[in-house]
Amino acid sequence: MAFKIVVCVKQVPDTNEIKIDPVKKTLIREGVPSILNPDDANALEAALQIKDELPETEVTVISMGPPQAKAMLTECMAMGADRAVLLSDRALGGSDTWATSNALAAGIQKLGGCDLIFAGQQAIDGDTAQVGPQIAEKLALPQVTYVSKIETVGSTAGESDTMTVVRALEDGYERIKVQIPCLITAIKALNEPRYMSIRGIFDALQKDVTVWQAADLGVDATEVGLDASPTNVYRSFTPVVKGRGQQITGDTDRELAVNLLQALKSKQIV
């Protein structure tokens, strides 16, 4: 058995090293190294682990971005991905999450679809966590977000078309059986991404990154790019640090209520 897997990845500035221009309030990108978005590395690792088990599996990484993103895609191939596709075109520039997911969904369709799509939970530059779910919606696929564990994929117990995953929520976990094909978004806890290998590096540089423009995808200016984006960034700023929350304690319900009332009164809220 083998799967066709697509992993959605993004090249992002290493936010550990990023600074904000105090006057313009925008990110200073000069001299900041670009990296594979950390959650996307977890998504790729999940795909590669399936390939480790089922070597016939084909893993394709896809990204939308400027031509420089090829370097990151080559690193993905050096980690073990079979091929890489970059959606790169001025017409795609300035896309928000809606427009980005239009382009990526079109790219995945042009690849001929797949059995599984993995994406990182969110990118460290935008932090929206929207692109993965939007791709699933646009391709009419089931999705499971915030996946922390993949328990079974495919043929287990005679079920060839499902996977069982654990989804991490703030207050607990859900174990979900989902129909394949589907889209999964990965969180950091899912796995530990592998390094590139020396062989992988030499092999990856023998391969080309496939570059598709908007016309190749069959999308137009009403679906992708700045003008097609229903949202835009109005202002970037560093939020003012608020005071910490206060915890009210008490041994009984009554005591708790009394203590809460006192605290509210002391702050002249009531």
Binding site: T74, E75, A78, Y195, M196, I198, I201, A204, L205
Partner: peptide, 15 residues
């Protein structure tokens, strides 16, 4: 070469 640059990067991360 690109290969050498990537190998150096890998060695740096690994170290």
């Amino acid at each position: 070469t690109k290969e050498q640059e990537m190998v150096r990067k890998l060695a740096q991360t690994f170290t």
